[in-house]
Design a protein around this nucleic acid. Structure first.
Lengths: 206, 206
DNA sequence: TTGGATCTAATATGGACATATTGTCAACCG
DNA sequence: CGGTTGACAATATGTCCATATTAGATCCAA
């Protein structure tokens, strides 16, 4: 139905505005009326399409996390097609999450703002956990694949490896964002960590 | 002067209340009147001792970061007296920052709440950066010491090593807090990372 | 065309909050 | 002893915000 599509578009439009506000001024600056103004619509419209402010934020955050996951997935797909090593697929997927250029810095900022708020807000925590678990599972799956051709030791715990990599990436991301650690160092550290999970290196479909 | 001491005590009392509120309900739940109630004083008293709410939060955050640093320092001092390896001094100092028991979980929560807010608030960012830089410098110094007796390769960049360790600890802390990574895995990852900075091991004052 | 459902906008309401103002009481000082 | 000052407490003020309410517009079915 075209009306549903229209409906969905309106919600996207509002969510876009939320993201812009968070990126520019932080989550605290997001009010319903500011969001409406930023989106170029009335407060009434926002109310019409979202049951509450919380609902609006949840929707926006869901979109942010899903896009983040899709980007990792997309990057991995690209590389897989080019027959990269599995190690490289993981590396590039994870690098995608680091705030190393302006676009990703903005994204990182938005994600972090929501993630921080999620510490006290169970509904946002649910959104985060869902996506985070999905990404972790995906990374673990890829690591598992690495065992087949010897990139990863056969007795390695893929789940644990994935969890460790995600933790390291988040820590590096935070410090990279705060400019405490320059990009070259960040990538160096990431590579060293990845090398521990992937002692070998080989091509996926040789 | 006794009056100054009294003055200081009142401020501590209020800051204690702020911390308790943040730990229990997050930074958003901190209002001047709630803080006053939590501290068992009137709103007027809080106003009397702090020029503004921001001033109050800044004071509370400063105390939090300084205590965190003091704890790391203290732990390091203890171990140094017992002639631990330098590697161990660093390890235990960093472990001190991880939310691995209830007390440290609460502390971590408070620190994280402030750190997250600091992303949008330059005055809080200044507090964080000051302490963070001091800790990093301290870690770097210890790493540098490790070169003397061969725990650390002579050509290693101590600053970079310290920055990397701090980033990893923060990432592990985040995931440990969110219970995505069990304690054993967190410590395992930390140790592996430390082992890269400290390939050797020897006693400080042998 | 009419009448209701669906949207959208404007405005109203009520609460929460930071801060300002005013009041009280004590100690200390001249 | 009158007055000034410091340490509070109580209350007032005005802003901002989420949400409710009301009203107007558009579209479509009967």
């Amino acid at each position: 139905m075209a009306t549903e599509e229209y409906h969905a578009q309106r919600r996207q439009q509002v969510a876009d505005a939320v993201e812009r506000l968070v990126a520019a001024r932080g989550l605290d600056a997001v009010t319903v009326s500011r969001t409406a103004a930023e989106a170029g619509v009335s407060v009434g419209l926002v109310q019409h399409y979202f049951a509450s402010k919380d609902d609006m934020l949840r929707f926006a955050y869901t979109r942010v996390t899903e896009r983040a996951m899709a980007r990792v997935e997309e990057r991995a797909r690209e590389l897989t097609e080019h027959r990269s090593t599995i190690r490289r697929v993981v590396r590039e997927g994870l690098v995608e999450r680091l705030p190393l250029d302006e676009a990703r810095r903005a994204d990182w900022r938005v994600s972090f703002a929501f993630a921080a708020r999620a510490v006290d807000r169970p509904d946002l925590a649910a959104v985060r956990n869902r996506t985070e678990a999905a990404i972790r599972a995906r990374v673990a799956e890829v690591i598992e694949n690495g065992k087949e051709c010897g990139e990863v030791p056969a007795d390695a715990d893929a789940e644990e490896g994935a969890a460790g990599l995600m933790a390291v990436v988040d820590g590096l991301g935070l410090h990279a964002y705060l400019e405490a650690v320059p990009e070259s160092v960040v990538l160096g550290l990431l590579d060293r960590h990845i090398a521990e999970v992937f002692p070998g290196e080989c091509h996926q479909y040789d």
